[in-house]
Write a protein that binds this DNA or RNA. Sequence first.
DNA 1: AACATGACGTTTC
DNA 2: GGAAACGCCATGT
Length: 119
Amino acid sequence: MQKSFQNYQKIWQTVQCIPEGKVASYGQVADLAGLPGRARLVGKALGQVPDDGWQGKVVPWFRVINSQGKISFAEGSEAHLRQKQYLQDEQVVVLGSRIKMSEFQWQPDLTELLYKLTF
DNA sequence: AACATGACGTTTC
DNA sequence: GGAAACGCCATGT
């Protein structure tokens, strides 16, 4: 395994904390995972998510979007449609690629984070 | 070793 | 709001 696998684990664990019906940005996940300024690594990590989940839990990669409140896959691409579908299934409103961050951005509860994140 | 490439972010026009 | 310029760093060539 690569050295960065440790970081991937932190990222996956953080993403698992995003509740249904909410979204977070790559940078936000990076910060919470203890990797400030490394948003690109979050994208890498999400591309490496095991399909059958990690440590018994699904990793909701589709709840991570960019800081402009948009889905990062190109509109019309297979991945874009899939992500949009998953989000809409959770009542998140997606117009084109856009999501109202003011309404749907995850505002993490710190005590819950401290309880869940083990690093 | 040098260079290019990302599911990105912030700052600055 | 949008575009350019940086910053970031694991990976692949």
